Simulated scan of single mutants.
Amino acid sequence: MRIGIDLGGTKIEGVVLADSGAPLFRQRVASPSHNYDNIIDAIASMVAQFEREIGRQATVGVGTPGAPSIHSGLMKNANSTVINGKPLKADLEQALNREVRLANDANCFALSEAVDGAGSGQQVVFGVILGTGVGGGLVVDSQPLLGRNFLGGEWGHNPLPGANEHRRCYCGSSDCIETYLCGSGLLRSAKRLNPAIESTHDLAQRAQEGESSALAVIEAYAAALAKALATVINIADPDIIVLGGGLSNIDALYPLLNNQLAGSVFGRECQTSVVKALHGDASGVRGAAWLWPAA
Rank of each mutant, 00 (worst) to 15 (best):
N149Q: 10
N149D: 06
F150P: 00
F150I: 04
L151M: 08
G152T: 02
G152C: 03
G153P: 03
G153C: 07
E154Q: 10
E154C: 01
W155P: 00
W155A: 01
G156S: 05
G156H: 06
H157W: 10
H157T: 06
N158M: 12
P159G: 03
P159Q: 09
L160Y: 11
P161F: 12
P161E: 05
P161T: 08
P161D: 05
G162L: 03
A163T: 08
A163K: 05
N164R: 08
N164D: 12
N164I: 02
N164F: 02
E165G: 01
E165L: 13
H166S: 12
H166P: 00
H166Q: 14
R168F: 12
C169P: 04
Y170L: 09
C171Q: 08
C171A: 09
C171F: 12
C171W: 13
C171D: 07
C171H: 08
C171T: 11
C171K: 11
S173A: 15
S173C: 08
S173P: 01
S174H: 11
D175S: 05
D175F: 06
C176Q: 06
I177Y: 02
I177P: 04
E178C: 02
T179M: 03
Y180K: 04
Y180S: 04
G183D: 10
S184A: 13
G185A: 05
G185P: 00
G185F: 03
L186N: 00
L186R: 02
L187C: 02
R188D: 11
S189Q: 15
A190M: 04
A190W: 03
K191Q: 15
R192K: 14
R192I: 13
L193D: 09
A196I: 03
A196S: 14
I197D: 00
S199H: 04
S199Q: 05
S199P: 00
T200G: 06
T200P: 00
H201I: 15
D202G: 03
D202A: 14
D202P: 00
L203W: 02
L203E: 00
A204M: 08
A204E: 01
A204V: 12
A204Y: 05
Q205S: 14
Q205M: 13
A207V: 10
Q208Y: 07
E209C: 10
E209L: 15
E209Y: 13
G210Y: 07
S212D: 12
S212G: 00
S213N: 12
A214E: 01
A214P: 05
L215N: 15
L215I: 10
L215G: 15
L215K: 13
A216T: 13
A216L: 13
V217T: 11
V217N: 10
V217R: 09
A220W: 04
A220T: 14
Y221Q: 07
A222F: 14
A222Q: 08
A224N: 15
A224K: 13
A224T: 12
L225C: 05
L225E: 03
A226R: 08
A226T: 07
K227F: 05
K227Y: 06
A228I: 11
A228R: 05
L229W: 12
L229V: 07
L229F: 14
L229H: 03
A230S: 11
A230G: 02
T231C: 12
T231N: 11
T231S: 14
V232G: 02
V232S: 03
I233N: 01
I233D: 01
I233S: 01
I233K: 01
A236R: 06
A236T: 07
A236V: 15
D237G: 11
P238D: 09
